[in-house]
Design a protein around this nucleic acid. Structure first.
Length: 825
DNA sequence: CCGTCGACTGTTTTT
DNA sequence: CAGTCGACGG
C-alpha cells in the first residue's frame, strides 16, 4: 500500500555473514546457485516439487539481508494473490520486518497500482473501475446488439475472446483496424465493435482485465519518463510461473528491465508521489543499467495457452536475454519415486520439450491406485470410501485433494461426499463475487466511487424493481448524451427526462441514496473517510435503496441465501477495514476485483479440497485423486482440434499427478452423464502412458467392460431406443465392449458398484429426507446401495447427525442420517 | 413495465 | 439438464 520509503533494514538483525549461512543452509548445489547467482538475467527451470518457492524466497531474502537491495527495489510477480501472500510471509519469516515495502503481487495487482498512480496522465482518474469478464460481456452484448452484428455471426462471447486475444498481443483497436481485412464486412463490424468497446471503457473510466496489463505497457511506451521512474525503482524483478506469461506480460517485463537512457533521476516525478527512494550506495552507472531479472518456471507445467500464455517466453528466454544464466532444478522433494516415474513417463510423450528428469530420494513408496467406476457416482463413491479409509489411517482431510478437469464434474463428487459425510470444500465453482446480488452490491459501490461508470449505474437502475425499465433507461441515456453528462449525473434531473411523475420520484430517490452514500464514502469536505466507511456506505446503499427490503419481502427461497451472501459481503467490507487501516473504497473495489478462487483457499484444516486441475497448480497434498481420467475429458474434446491442445492437456495431467506427495489415485468412469444424457466414456490415452507396473488397479477398465455386465440402465435404454447403430464405443475393435446382449443380474459384482445409476443426478432437488430418524448404536439398517449393516456410532447434531455403519458386505461407511437412503430394520 | 412461459443453447481451463 | 433469452399477455 505504501512506498515504505522510511523503512530501513533493521540494524539489530543478524549479522550479514551468519544470516547468510542460515539462508543458504540445506540447499542443494543447483538451488544454491539459483539463490546466489548475480547477473542481469537468470532462468530457473524448476521441475515440479523442486523447491522453487523456497529458492525464490531465499533469493529475495538474501538480497535484502546482504543489503544488496532495499525492499522497495524488489518487484516479485506471482500467479495468484495467494501465492503472493505466501511469498511475502515466507520472506518475512526469513528476514523479518525488512520485507515490508516490497512489491509482491500478481501482474494484475502490480499494474493496477501503477495505473492508479499514473491514471491522470492519460485520461483516466485514480478511481477507475476494473471490469471483470462478466462486465465486459455485458457491455459487448449491448454493442453487438447496437451494431446488429449477430447477423455476421458475431456473438458477444466471440467478440470478447477475440478482443482479449488481441489485447494479450498488445494490439489495440486502431492497430487491429489497420491490419484487418476491411473489405470483409464481418471484419469491419468487429473492428467497429472493438473500437466502440474501447471508447465505452474509456468513457466509463474503466479497464478490463486485459487492459490492466496492455495499457500499462502502452503507458510505458508512450511516456518514457514514467517508465523510467519504475525502471529506476525496481532493480530486482522476479517472476514466478514464467511459463504462463502471455505476450503482454512479457512485454511489460521487457519494458521494466530496459536500461535507463540519459536523463537525470526525477525522484518526485509522477504527480509528486515519491516513487523511488535514494539507493543505499547510489552509484550512477548502476542506476542506468537495466534491472536484474529472475524468472522461474517449468515449461512442462504450462497450462494456460488457451488464455494467451506463450510457452516461447520461457523456451526462448536465453535468446531474449543474452548472457542469461540457466539453472536446472531436477531433484524433487515432494513425491515418491513411483509417482514421479509415472509423471515422467507421461510428460515424456510431449515431443518438443527439453528433456528433464525429475528424481526423488524418497524411495518408491506406494503404488498408484487405479479405479474404474461404472458411472461417475460409482467413481465418486470410490473416492469417498478411499478418503475415509485414509482418514482412518491417520491422513488429515486437509491433506487430501480431489481434482477434475471441468467444474461440472464436481457435482457428482459433491453429492456423494455429502451422503458419505466427508467434509469437503470446493475451490472455485461459482465464485462469490460473481453472484448476481454481490455484483449488484458492487455496482452500487462503483456507482459512487466512479460515477463515470455507466455500466454500473445502469445495472442498479432497476434493482430492486422500482419501475424503471428499458424505455426509461434509454430516455436517461439520451438526456445524458444530449447534455454531455454522465448517466449518473442525468439522474439528478428527473424532471427533465420526459417521464411520468412516478418514475421521476423513483429516479430522484435513487439519486438521493447515491448522494447520501457518496457523502459517507467520499465526503465533499475532502477529508479522508475512515476505512469503516466502506461497510457503512454499503449498508446505507443496500438499506435505503430498498434492496434488502425487497429480498426480505420475497418468498423465493433463494432470496434468503442472497441475503446471507450480502451479509457476508458486508462482513468482508468490515474485515477489509480491519486489515487495511488506510483503505479507501477504491482500494476495496480493487481488492475485490482481483481476488480469485485460488486465493481464498486458506487451508481450512479438516476438509478435503475439491478443485479443477488448473486450480491445483502450485499446490501439494499427501493424497491426491485425479478423477475423470477419460478421453474427451482429459484430453478434453475441445482441445483435440487445437494445435498443441493434446500436449497442453498432457501437461495438465502431469500437473495433477505431481501434486501428490505420497499417494496418487487415478479414477475414471465407464459412463458419464452430461447434459442429462448418458454417454460412454473411454479411458484416457494418458493412462496407457504410465507403466503398468506402477498402477495397482482396484478395478481396471478391462474388469468393467469384459464382464459385460453392469451397465447403466439409462445407457441400455438409450441404445435400444434407436441411438443409431453407429460405431460408438467400439473404436478399439472390441465390438461390443458394452455388451449389447442380455443383461446380467448384479450378483457377483462388488458391492461398491451396484446400482449407482439409481443415484439422483441432481445435487439439489430430490433430496431424500428422513426427518429425524432416531438411530442408536447396535441398530440394524438397510441402505439402498450398500445393503444391511449395523450402526456402530452416531455423532453430530440435528441435520448433521452422522451414522457410522458397518455394512455386512460393503464395509465401514459414514452416512448423513437425514438424507441417506436407509431404513431402520 | 412485470412476470411467466417456452424455446433455446451451451457446455474447458481463469488473472 | 440448467440457466438464459426472447416473446407475449396481464
Amino acid at each position: 500500500m505504501t512506498d515504505a520509503s522510511l523503512i530501513v533494514p533493521a540494524s539489530s538483525g543478524p549479522r550479514p555473514a551468519e544470516g547468510r549461512d542460515a539462508l543458504l543452509a540445506g540447499l542443494n548445489p543447483q538451488q544454491l546457485e539459483a539463490v546466489t547467482y548475480r547477473g542481469i538475467a537468470l532462468l530457473i527451470v524448476a521441475g515440479a516439487g523442486s523447491g522453487k518457492t523456497s529458492v525464490l524466497t531465499r533469493r529475495i531474502a538474501l538480497l535484502l539481508q546482504q543489503r544488496e537491495a532495499w525492499p522497495s527495489q524488489i518487484l516479485a510477480i506471482t500467479f495468484t494473490n495467494k501465492a503472493a501472500g505466501e511469498m511475502r510471509e515466507r520472506v518475512a519469516g526469513l528476514v523479518g520486518d525488512t520485507a515490508r515495502g516490497m512489491w509482491i503481487s500478481t501482474f494484475h495487482s502490480a499494474c493496477v497500482r501503477i495505473l492508479r498512480r499514473e491514471a491522470d496522465q492519460f485520461g483516466f482518474t485514480k478511481s477507475f473501475t476494473i471490469y471483470d469478464s462478466g462486465d465486459s460481456r455485458a457491455l459487448l452484448k449491448r454493442l453487438v446488439k447496437e451494431h446488429e452484428a449477430d447477423a455476421y455471426g458475431l456473438t458477444p462471447g466471440a467478440a470478447q475472446s477475440r478482443i482479449s486475444k488481441l489485447k494479450n498481443e498488445l494490439l489495440d483497436a486502431e492497430g487491429y483496424a489497420r491490419q484487418a481485412n476491411m473489405s470483409d464486412p464481418a471484419e469491419r463490424k468487429f473492428a467497429d465493435i472493438f473500437a466502440d468497446y474501447q471508447r465505452a471503457l474509456q468513457k466509463s473510466n474503466a479497464f478490463d482485465f486485459d487492459d490492466l496489463i496492455a495499457q500499462t505497457v502502452f503507458l510505458f511506451r508512450a511516456f518514457p519518463k514514467v517508465a523510467n521512474v519504475y525502471r529506476r525503482r525496481f532493480r530486482h524483478i522476479l517472476v514466478d510461473e514464467y511459463q504462463d506469461t502471455n505476450h503482454a506480460q512479457y512485454s511489460l517485463i521487457r519494458e521494466l528491465t530496459k536500461p535507463i537512457e540519459g536523463e537525470a533521476p526525477e525522484p518526485y516525478a509522477s504527480n509528486g508521489m515519491m516513487i523511488f527512494e535514494p539507493e543505499p550506495e547510489a552509484s550512477s552507472d548502476e542506476s542506468t543499467a537495466g534491472a536484474s531479472l529472475t524468472v522461474v518456471g517449468d515449461s512442462d507445467q504450462s497450462i494456460y495457452a488457451f488464455r494467451g500464455a506463450d510457452i516461447r517466453n520461457i523456451t526462448e528466454f536465453e535468446r531474449d536475454f543474452p548472457g542469461a544464466k540457466v539453472v536446472l532444478l531436477e531433484q524433487n522433494y515432494r513425491s515418491t519415486q513411483n509417482i514421479l516415474s509415472a509423471a515422467n513417463s507421461v510428460i515424456g510423450n510431449n515431443f518438443d520439450r527439453k528433456a528433464k528428469n525429475l528424481w526423488s530420494d524418497k524411495g518408491p513408496g506406494e503404488k498408484i491406485v487405479g479405479f474404474t467406476g461404472y458411472s461417475q457416482h460409482d467413481e465418486a463413491q470410490f473416492v469417498a470410501d478411499e478418503v475415509e479409509q485414509l482418514r482412518r489411517a491417520g491422513v488429515a482431510y486437509s491433506e487430501m485433494a480431489v481434482f477434475y478437469r471441468t467444474n461440472s464434474q464436481s457435482r457428482a463428487l459433491e453429492e456423494i461426499f455429502i451422503r458419505s459425510a466427508v467434509p469437503y470444500k470446493i475451490m472455485g465453482g461459482t465464485k462469490f463475487y460473481e453472484r448476481a446480488e454481490i455484483k449488484d452490491a458492487l455496482a452500487y459501490l462503483v456507482a459512487v466511487a466512479n460515477p463515470a461508470d455507466d455500466m454500473a449505474v445502469r445495472r442498479i437502475l432497476n434493482k430492486p424493481r422500482r419501475g424503471i425499465g428499458a424505455v426509461t433507461e434509454t430516455s436517461i441515456g439520451m438526456y445524458a448524451e444530449q447534455h454531455g453528462i454522465s448517466f449518473r449525473d442525468a439522474l439528478r434531473h428527473p424532471g427533465e427526462l420526459g417521464v411520468g411523475p412516478k418514475l421521476q420520484a423513483a429516479i430522484a430517490r435513487l439519486d438521493s441514496v447515491l448522494a447520501e452514500a457518496t457523502e459517507v464514502l467520499l465526503p465533499a469536505s475532502g477529508e479522508l473517510p475512515p476505512p469503516t466507511s466502506v461497510a457503512e456506505g454499503l449498508t446505507v446503499l443496500l438499506n435505503k435503496s430498498g434492496y434488502f427490503d425487497a429480498l426480505r419481502a420475497s418468498r423465493d427461497p433463494q432470496d434468503e441465501a442472497r441475503l446471507e451472501n450480502l451479509d457476508e459481503f458486508v462482513a468482508v467490507a468490515r474485515d477489509f477495514a480491519r486489515n487495511n487501516p488506510d483503505g479507501t473504497i477504491v482500494d476495496f473495489l480493487t481488492e475485490v476485483a482481483l481476488v480469485s478462487d485460488a486465493d481464498d483457499l486458506d487451508d481450512e484444516s479438516g476438509v478435503v479440497s475439491l478443485m479443477t486441475l488448473h486450480t491445483a497448480k502450485g499446490l501439494e497434498y499427501d493424497a491426491v485423486f485425479v478423477t475423470g481420467v477419460e478421453e474427451d475429458l482429459i484430453p478434453h474434446r475441445i482441445s483435440a482440434g487445437e494445435p498443441g491442445g493434446p500436449q497442453e492437456e498432457r501437461r495438465l495431467f502431469y500437473v495433477g499427478i505431481t501434486r501428490a506427495r505420497k499417494r496418487l489415485h487415478l479414477s475414471l468412469a465407464m459412463t458419464r452423464a452430461q447434459f442429462g444424457e448418458v454417454s460412454v466414456a473411454m479411458p484416457s490415452r494418458f493412462l496407457q502412458e504410465i507403466p503398468a507396473e506402477l498402477i495397482d488397479w482396484r478395478q481396471s477398465p478391462g474388469d468393467v467392460n469384459s464382464r459385460g455386465g453392469m451397465q447403466s440402465r439409462a445407457l441400455n435404454a438409450r441404445r435400444s431406443g434407436g441411438w443409431g447403430s453407429g460405431g460408438q464405443g467400439s473404436s478399439k475393435g472390441g465390438g461390443d465392449r458394452f455388451g449389447v446382449q442380455a443383461l446380467p443380474k448384479r450378483e457377483g459384482l462388488k458391492p461398491l458398484s451396484t446400482a449407482m445409476d439409481r443415484f439422483p443426478n441432481k445435487v439439489t432437488g430430490k433430496v431424500r429426507d428422513n426427518g429425524d430418524l432416531e438411530l442408536a448404536t447396535g441398530d440394524r439398517i438397510r441402505h439402498d446401495d450398500f445393503g444391511e449393516g449395523r450402526i456402530e456410532a452416531v455423532t453430530g447434531e440435528g441435520a448433521k447427525r452422522i451414522a457410522h455403519v458397518r455394512f455386512d458386505t460393503a464395509g465401514q461407511k459414514k452416512l448423513l442420517i437425514k438424507i441417506a437412503p436407509i431404513v431402520k430394520l
